[in-house]
Computed example of a mutant assay.
Amino acid sequence: MDRIFKERMPVSQAKEKFLASIVPLTRTEDISIRDCPGRVLATHTIAPRNVPHFRRSAMDGYAMRAADTLGASPLNPVMLQLSDVVEEGTCTRIGTGQHMPEGADAVMMIEDTISMGDMIEIRAQLHPGKNVGDIGEDIRKNEILFNKGHLLRACDVGVLASLGIREVKVYCKPVVAIIPVGDDLVPLSYTELPSAGKNLESNSLMIGLYVEQWGGVPKYHNIVPEDTAQIEQAIKENIDADMLIISGGTSVGEKDFVPGVVASRGELLVHGVGLSPGKPTALGLVNGKPVVCMPGYPAAGLVALFVFGRPALRKVANAPDVPDVIVKAQLSSKVTSREGYLSYARVILDGRTAHPLMTAGAGILSSIAKSQGFVIITEHVEGYEKDSEVDVVLIE
């Protein structure tokens, strides 16, 4: 494999090309509605009955016949007898949501009445159906409640529960294999101080937590040395996963074998993107499964994970991509970027002021932890001046 990036694909083009190659999951499962928030419906959900299934009062007041209120006003009130049944000349006390009694076709708000023992002074005129909820007013039987592909929320669960629905069919969560590559890595279980040149392998845990947050199931693989055969074997062992994320071994050094292995076992769609940090990112397919090859440097890897890994995982899961949370802020100092690169400048937020932390330093993970978000600088902008109002994308 040639050891230089002959091309640097724009981020938008790389993302479009990669996502277009991904086929969403078709596996489904039936789960309890208690477990369905954040899951994606695999079928249309049809209402099995009306809600409400009875006529109900929409107000606190008195149920009565609208015809008995004809001409009623504060200056010309009508007197009705308080009763347990509704018939000509009578009314009955009713609360919001309660079943409308036989003979009643309207509800007078309590504010438009005056109680006089067992007589009620009616001070307004009603028309039939006033302040009454009809059968199926909220939901009609056989109505489509939620379409296939709907991302279920807690409020949706309330609707399902109100209809007596206890289970729903959803798409299975994608299994994402996480493969760390690097001769310099030691496992997190290592209790001694790593020797010079060695580092604890922390990327897998970070990736796995985001995979769970974005709707997937992480499958962790042991550290793989920078060796073509062993990288190929690791991919082979995880080909049953729905998606693969490989951390490290993506650049153009003598031992950066990952893109070449992906190309030999499947299709390498992209290698080298106009992303800072994150230029060495590679994207491809192996056995039809999407593969995100992110840089091993933590900050660069995290940016690549946000830009490519998250939307890829959401598409595999049949779920809409997670929208960025953006706040407006004013820069306390100038931020610069590399022309031709989509740059992610880390900033610290102090109220509505954004203090730039750094735009470089791909290996400095603490710069992510210290910052609250990114200012994204487009490819054709050299940066933003001090006091500029910018969008800050919050780090999840």
Rank of each mutant, 00 (worst) to 15 (best):
K6A: 15
Q13T: 11
E16G: 07
F18D: 08
L19G: 08
L25K: 07
E29F: 06
S32I: 05
S32F: 12
R34P: 03
D35E: 14
T45W: 14
N50C: 10
A63M: 02
R65Y: 06
A67C: 07
D68E: 03
T69R: 01
E87Y: 13
E87W: 13
R93P: 07
R93V: 02
R93E: 07
H99D: 00
M100W: 00
P101A: 07
E121G: 09
P128S: 06
K130T: 12
K130E: 13
G136Y: 03
E137W: 07
E143G: 04
E143I: 08
I144M: 11
F146N: 00
N147W: 15
C155L: 08
D156W: 05
V159Y: 06
A161E: 12
S162P: 09
L163D: 01
K173P: 01
L185A: 04
V186L: 10
L188I: 11
P194N: 05
S195P: 01
N199G: 01
N199L: 13
E201K: 06
S204V: 03
Y210I: 08
V211I: 10
V211K: 05
V211T: 12
Q213E: 14
K219N: 13
Y220F: 15
V224Q: 01
T228G: 01
Q233L: 06
M243F: 11
I246K: 02
S247R: 07
V261H: 08
L268K: 02
V273A: 12
S276G: 11
P277Q: 08
V286Y: 00
K289I: 08
K289P: 05
P290H: 03
G296D: 09
L302G: 09
L305Y: 04
F306N: 09
R310L: 08
A312H: 01
S332D: 11
S332M: 14
S333V: 09
S337C: 13
Y341G: 01
S343G: 12
L349P: 05
G351Q: 04
L357E: 14
I364H: 14
S367A: 15
A369T: 13
F374A: 12
E379S: 11
E385D: 13
D387T: 15
D387R: 11
D387Q: 11
L394M: 08
